[in-house]
C-alpha cells in the first residue's frame, strides 16, 4: 500500500470522489486497546527470546487444526470397541495415546450416557472446555445464561437446544475446573449396526459431546 492517498484505482476508476468500497479491509479498522496490547506483548516476548515468531505461527496452525472430529474419533472407537470404551472412561489420556491422540494437558473425564443417565458439561466459573478434543468453545458455552442455568435447570436448558429427555432420565451436570475437564460419551444411535468407525464418527457432533444434544442415527433416505 502506498503511503499517500493518491493510489491508482485502475482503468475502471472514474469516480472523481475517489470512492472506497463500503466494507473496509480488516487491517484498516483501528486497533482496540487490547489488540494493541496483544501486539505489544507478543513483540516484547519475541524480543526477549521467550517465544519466537515461528513458535507463534506453529501454535496458531496447531490450534486451527483442532476440531471436534478428534472427540468424534474417540467416541466412534468407543462405540466400536468395548475394551477401548472401558479404557477411555478409566483413563482418557492413556486411551488417547493408544491411537496417537493427545487429549491435552488437563485431565479429561469421559462421562458415558446410558438409557437412564444423561451427562451435560459446563464451566460455571469461567469457560474450561476439552479444547484438545473439541476445539474452541462456542460463544453460548461461555455465555452467562448457560453458565448460570446449566446446573440449576439443565432440563430446560437442554430443551432450548431441542433436546427433550424423558423425565425418567437422570441428568448429571459436570462443572469443569482448571484441573479437571469433561467430555460426554453419547449413546450409539439405533440403526447404526455395521457402520464403520469413520461413518460413526460422522454422526458425532460437538454438541452431543458437550451433552446439549444427542446424536441422530443415519437419515432414512
Amino acid at each position: 500500500m502506498s503511503s499517500d492517498h493518491h493510489h491508482d484505482h485502475g482503468m475502471y476508476d472514474s469516480d472523481p470522489l475517489h470512492h472506497h468500497p463500503p466494507q473496509p479491509d480488516l487491517e484498516d479498522t483501528p486497533l482496540t486497546h487490547h489488540q494493541i496490547m496483544q501486539i505489544a506483548v507478543g513483540e516484547l516476548l519475541i524480543e526477549k527470546n521467550i517465544i519466537s515468531a515461528d513458535e507463534l505461527r506453529a501454535q496458531i496452525e496447531f490450534q486451527d487444526s483442532i476440531t471436534p472430529a478428534r472427540g468424534a474419533e474417540l467416541v466412534a472407537r468407543a462405540w466400536s470397541d468395548d475394551g477401548f470404551k472401558g479404557r477411555l472412561i478409566a483413563d482418557s489420556k492413556a486411551a488417547g495415546d493408544e491411537i496417537g491422540m493427545d487429549v491435552g494437558p488437563v485431565p479429561i473425564l469421559v462421562m458415558e450416557n446410558t438409557p437412564t443417565v444423561h451427562n451435560l458439561i459446563v464451566c460455571t466459573l469461567c469457560s474450561c472446555y476439552p479444547r484438545f478434543l473439541l476445539g474452541i468453545p462456542p460463544d453460548w458455552y461461555k455465555s452467562r445464561s448457560y453458565r448460570r442455568r446449566a446446573i440449576s435447570e439443565p432440563r430446560k436448558v437442554l430443551s432450548e437446544f431441542g433436546t427433550d429427555l424423558n423425565d425418567s432420565v437422570e441428568i448429571k451436570v459436570h462443572d469443569s475446573t482448571a484441573d479437571m475437564r469433561y467430555m460426554v460419551l453419547p449413546m450409539r444411535p439405533a440403526g447404526t449396526d455395521g457402520m464403520s468407525e469413520a461413518e460413526l464418527a460422522g454422526l458425532v457432533t460437538r454438541d452431543c459431546m458437550i451433552g446439549v444434544t444427542v446424536p441422530e442415527g443415519p437419515s432414512k433416505a
Binding site: 459446563v122 448460570r148 442455568r149 437446544f161
Partner: peptide
C-alpha cells in the same frame, strides 16, 4: 454465577 437465574441461552 452458577445457579443464578437468567434468560434463554442464545
Amino acid at each position: 454465577m452458577g445457579g443464578l437465574e437468567d434468560g434463554p441461552v442464545e
